[in-house]
Amino acid sequence: MEFDTTIFWDALTSQEYLDGAVLSLVLAAAAQILAVIIGFVVALGRVSKRRIPRGIAAVYVWFFRAIPTLLVLLLIWNAGPQLFPALREDWFSPFLAGLIGLAVVEAAYMAEIIRSALLSVDEGQALAARALGLTPAKVMRKVLVPQAIRVALPPTGNEFIAMIKYTSLASVISLRELLTTAQVGVSVTFRYAEYYVAALVYYLVIVSVVMALQAMLERRYRWVSRTPRTWRPGRTASSALAPNAPAPKEVSA
């Protein structure tokens, strides 16, 4: 059996694949945003000087880093309605279950990223800001967070790319995302190569666009000071600043 380009092209350009790709991207973006918010709160607990918040945050990170994401999704979708009757209503959709499951697991990883970023900022920055009369909230918002973003941005971008791929796990809770769309086509035609390769192309395009946006954001937060060229023996300070300027003549005694 050969690769059928017609089936591949029909799947690649179908509305079902486009809807599945959009749903995967929306779910990944929403889950990542929610994970950043939860992770920021957990990170504050991790760096707190009080024992109770620090202990609760540590347990949260330990728990959700220890269990598989797939198991969390199954617990929320299948065991949740069994334990909480309110989840049996129509409002509890596979999208919402996937959003909660992916967000709470990713928040544990984002908490460690944000914690490391906050600790990378020199303590003197906060002390200087407090000496200027800034409140702790303003110190965090205007001094610590802007500097921590620069450190946290690259790993956060990597986590978002991973999140896009983790949305495929939502296929087990009946969410019709990109991979589920490909599996539906395979179950009908048994053309594995064509339908899976079409999904692969969508993932490659989405991740490539995200990587380009990540590179743009990293350049936006890159603080680089322009310095003169390295001084070499035989060059004066003025020639180092102006490489094309003629060297001064030596004055004989």
Rank of each mutant, 00 (worst) to 15 (best):
G98E: 01
I76P: 09
L87H: 01
S48G: 01
G39R: 06
R46Q: 03
L74K: 11
P81I: 12
A79V: 14
A28V: 07
L70W: 02
I113M: 01
A31C: 06
G133C: 01
A103S: 15
I114F: 04
I67T: 15
A57H: 03
L25M: 15
A137L: 14
A117I: 07
L70Y: 02
W91P: 00
L75Y: 14
I52V: 13
L25Y: 08
L27I: 09
E112W: 05
L73P: 05
A28K: 09
F63K: 08
F84T: 01
P136D: 02
S93V: 01
V143Q: 12
P81Y: 12
A103R: 01
V42H: 14
A57V: 04
L71R: 02
R54V: 01
A103D: 04
K49T: 11
A57K: 06
L71S: 05
G55Q: 08
L102P: 07
L132Y: 08
A148P: 09
G80Y: 09
I67D: 13
L102G: 03
A137R: 13
R46F: 00
V72M: 08
L127W: 11
V104G: 02
L23I: 12
K138T: 14
L71F: 06
V47E: 04
A107T: 10
V139W: 11
A29L: 15
K49F: 06
S120H: 06
V145H: 12
A66Y: 02
I38N: 03
P146E: 10
I37L: 14
R115Q: 11
V139P: 11
P68S: 03
A86G: 00
G124L: 03
A21F: 10
F64V: 14
R150Q: 15
G98L: 02
P53T: 06
A30V: 15
V41F: 12
R115W: 05
I100N: 05
L71Y: 07
G101L: 07
F84P: 00
L102D: 04
A86I: 02
L71V: 12
I76T: 12
S24T: 15
V22M: 14
V22S: 13
V41A: 12
I149N: 15
E106K: 06
G80S: 11
F84N: 00
A97F: 03
G101I: 08
T135E: 10
F84W: 10
V139A: 13
P94R: 02
L74P: 08
V143N: 09
A66C: 04
Y109A: 08
V26L: 15
F40Y: 06
A137Y: 07
P136I: 01
R51M: 06
V59H: 03
L73F: 07
L23H: 10
L144W: 04
A31T: 07
A148Y: 11
Q32I: 12
K138A: 15
Q125S: 13
K49Q: 10
F64K: 15
R50T: 06
G45A: 12
W91I: 01
L73E: 05
G98F: 02
A137M: 10
F84D: 02
I38R: 04
F63Q: 11
Y109C: 09
P81Q: 08
